[in-house]
Design a protein around this nucleic acid. Structure first.
Length: 260
DNA sequence: AATACTCGCAACCGCTTTTTC
DNA sequence: AGAAAAAGCGGTTGCGAGTAT
């Protein structure tokens, strides 16, 4: 731990060989919070020097943004947030800070970690490259509808239902009790778009739905959506306009797929 | 109970972009 | 206008906790 905290191989531009690295202590946190509350969260190098912390400005900024900022939201990523991440990543790729702007309280670092630990793990289990069209199609046509299905199932919609705004189209089944759209099961989906010649979307769907073709040596079995690290009880995000906008948009996109 | 392994996440690094002087 | 400094960003690393053997 000593080596970790006192890495002497710091970059040359950091003249102070006394610079601290590694995990922040409670005392350091308190100093930084106190200093920022008085002087504001700008000019990080100045803060680093003036506060007496033996940290770089970059380190101070990162600690503040990712941990100490009062509006940082901690805890499991909700289903709605998962949906947002998948959707926005499909639009913008690894633009973590841009994605984070649409997830209040979440940091780019957290979203990046979520993607790497959960989503890339899914790709690995499916034996797809995370950047492949095949995996993207699977995301869009299998995981996102299932995620939406679970979101719809767990909470009443706080907004005007979509079915009152738009006609019901192929690809949707209206649930009259809840006035909500219920997505078809992934196994019933039939993609109309093309996929890689070596393996079709339905091949991957087969692994998703049935676990067939899954490497038995893996022993862990196929990961369900429940395994994506969400907490079903944590659903405080359904009032967010961004989420509902994306949900609506996604519902329309999904109509391009049809039943078998 | 001990050891090996896996996973999640905080924090670092290097590069790029923006701001300041 | 240009150089230097600061801020921002995405990729990567490695610690520590939890789990499997």
């Amino acid at each position: 731990m000593e080596n970790y905290e006192q890495n002497l191989n710091s970059p040359a531009h950091e003249e102070d060989s006394d610079v601290r690295k590694g995990p922040w202590t409670e005392e350091e946190d308190a100093i930084l919070v106190n200093f920022v509350s008085i002087h504001g969260d700008a000019r990080w190098n100045h803060i680093a020097r003036s506060s007496g912390l033996k940290r770089t400005g970059k380190s101070c900024r990162l600690r503040w943004l990712n941990y100490l900022r009062p509006d940082v939201r901690r805890g499991n990523i909700t289903l709605e947030e998962q949906f947002m991440i998948l959707k926005l990543h499909s639009l913008w790729g690894n633009r973590w800070s841009k994605i984070a702007q649409y997830l209040p309280g979440r940091t780019d670092n957290e979203i990046k970690n979520y993607w790497r630990t959960r989503v890339q793990k899914q790709a690995k289990h499916l034996r797809c490259d995370v950047n492949s069209n095949l995996f993207k199609e699977t995301m869009k046509n299998v995981w996102m509808p299932r995620l939406m299905e679970r979101i719809n199932a767990q909470t009443p919609s706080p907004r005007q239902p979509i079915d009152k705004q738009t006609p019901v189209e192929p690809g949707f089944v209206l649930n009259p009790d809840q006035h909500r759209h219920q997505f078809v099961q992934a196994s019933e989906l039939c993609a109309t778009s093309s996929t890689s010649p070596a393996e079709t979307l339905s091949d991957v769907q087969d692994r998703v739905v049935n676990g067939s073709g899954y490497d038995p040596a893996g022993q862990t079995g196929f990961l369900e959506l429940n395994d994506w690290g969400c907490d079903d009880g944590d659903n405080m995000w359904t009032d967010d306009e961004s989420f509902w906008f994306l949900r609506d948009q996604f519902c329309h996109e999904t109509t391009s797929f049809s039943y078998n």
